[in-house]
Design a binder for these strands. Structure first.
Lengths: 212, 212
DNA sequence: CCTACCGATCGGTAGG
DNA sequence: CCTACCGATCGGTAGG
C-alpha cells in the first residue's frame, strides 16, 4: 500500500508525519470548523494533505462519513483528556474540574469548539440521534450534577439547564473572541483572559447549583 | 408593479398577506436557520413564497444581500422589543429585564436564535466587521454592565465575559431543546421549563456580577 | 494513489 | 413576474 507515485508533493505536512488517514482527519477538522458541513469542500481537505479528492474518498466513503469521523475523534479525545473526576472531592469541585478541563481542551483546540457549537445551531446535520458522539460527554456532566443533588450539595435542578448555561459558556468564550468587533476582541488563549473567565464561570456555576 | 401573471400560485401564504419582499424575508429566515448560509438554497426560499429564483434575485441582488437583510431585520426587531431599560431600577434588575426580554424574543422566534448562534461558530460568514448588525444589541448589554459597575452594584468584570456566559445561555436554551437526545428533550416554549431556566439564569447572572 | 468523467445543484444573468 | 441559459462547483464513481 506504500505509495511510490512520483507526483507526490504533500506541502502542508513537512516530513510527512502520521498516516494519511490521520492527516485527513486533522485537515477535515480545520475545514469543517471554518466552513461548516455544507460549506466545506472535500477538494480543500484533500488539497491540504496533498492528495486528490478521489483518494480521500478511498479512506472515507462519503463527506458525511468523514464528518462523523472528525466528530467522533473530537469527543474521544475530549473524554480521554478528563481526569480526577472519580475522586472523593466535593461535588462542586469535581464539577469545576470537569468544566475547567473542557475549557482547557477547547482553548487549545478551537476547531473542536466551533464544530461542537455548530451542533447547537444545525438542526438537521445529524440524521439520527444528535447525541451519537457526544452522549458520553453529556452523561459525564449530568452524572456529576445528579450526584451533587443526591448528596445535598446542589439544589435540585434539571441537569441540562446547568449544561446549557455552563457548557455553552465555555464554547462561546473560545468561539466569540473575534465576534464582538475589533474594539472588543480578546485572546482566548491569554492567561489573564482565561483567569477572568474561569473565575466568572465558577461563580456562575455556584449561582446555578448552590442549594437554596 | 402589481403582477398579473396567470401562473401565480403562492401556496404557502394563504390570502397573500404582506409584500413579496416581506414574505421572502420570512421564508429566508426559516431556510437560513435550518441550513445555514452555505447550505441554504435560494430555490427553496423562492419556492416557499411561490415564485422563481430569478424573481427573488430581483428583490435581493445576491444571496449575501438576502442573508444580511434577514440578519438586520432580526436585530432591528429584537431591539424594538426592548422596553423599560432606561428606568431608574436597580442595575441588576435592569440587566435581568434585558436578559428576560432576549429570552422571550428567542423562545418565540427560534429561527432568530439559530441564526445568531451560528454567528458564533461561523468564522468567515461576515466579510467585514462581525458586529455590523448586532453591535446595538451588544452595546445595550455592555452599557448596562458598565453602569452597574460604575454604581458599585456589580464587580468590575469585563462586560464581554458576562455576555459570553449569559447571552449564549439564552441562545443555547432555545436551540438545544432537541440536541441532547430524545431522553433529555425539553420544550423551550413550556411554562415550567422556561421558569426553571429563567431562575437559573438569574442566579448565574448574580454569581457572575455580584460585588466581591 | 491517480486521471477522467458523471449528474446534480448552485448563484447569477439575459432578455422580455 | 417569467423562461432559458451560463459557468462553476459539488460529491461521488469508474477504472486502473
Amino acid at each position: 500500500m506504500a505509495s511510490v507515485s512520483p507526483g507526490q508533493l504533500s506541502p502542508p505536512a513537512a516530513t510527512r508525519t502520521g498516516s494519511t488517514r490521520e492527516e485527513l482527519l486533522i485537515a477535515a477538522e480545520r475545514v469543517f470548523a471554518r466552513h461548516g458541513f455544507a460549506g466545506a469542500s472535500l477538494d480543500e481537505v484533500a488539497e491540504q494533505v496533498g492528495i486528490r479528492r478521489p483518494s480521500l474518498l478511498h479512506h472515507f466513503r462519503s463527506k458525511r462519513e468523514l464528518y462523523d469521523a472528525v466528530e467522533r475523534r473530537i469527543f474521544e479525545e475530549l473524554n480521554a483528556h478528563l481526569t480526577g473526576l472519580e475522586a472523593e472531592g466535593a461535588p462542586f469541585e469535581r464539577l469545576m474540574t470537569l468544566l475547567n478541563q473542557w475549557l482547557t481542551f477547547m482553548v487549545e483546540r478551537p476547531t473542536a469548539a466551533r464544530i461542537i457549537l455548530r451542533n447547537s445551531s444545525d438542526l438537521i446535520s445529524r440524521p439520527a440521534d444528535p447525541v451519537e458522539f457526544s452522549w458520553r460527554t453529556v452523561e459525564t456532566f449530568v452524572r456529576l450534577v445528579e450526584e451533587g443533588i443526591a448528596a445535598g450539595a446542589f439544589r435540585p435542578i434539571k441537569p441540562v439547564v446547568a449544561l446549557n448555561i455552563l457548557g455553552s459558556a465555555v464554547l462561546s468564550f473560545v468561539c466569540n473572541a473575534d465576534q464582538f468587533g475589533h474594539r472588543r476582541r480578546y485572546d482566548a488563549t491569554g492567561r489573564a483572559e482565561r483567569a477572568e473567565f474561569e473565575s466568572a464561570l465558577r461563580r456562575a456555576a455556584w449561582g446555578v447549583l448552590a442549594p437554596a
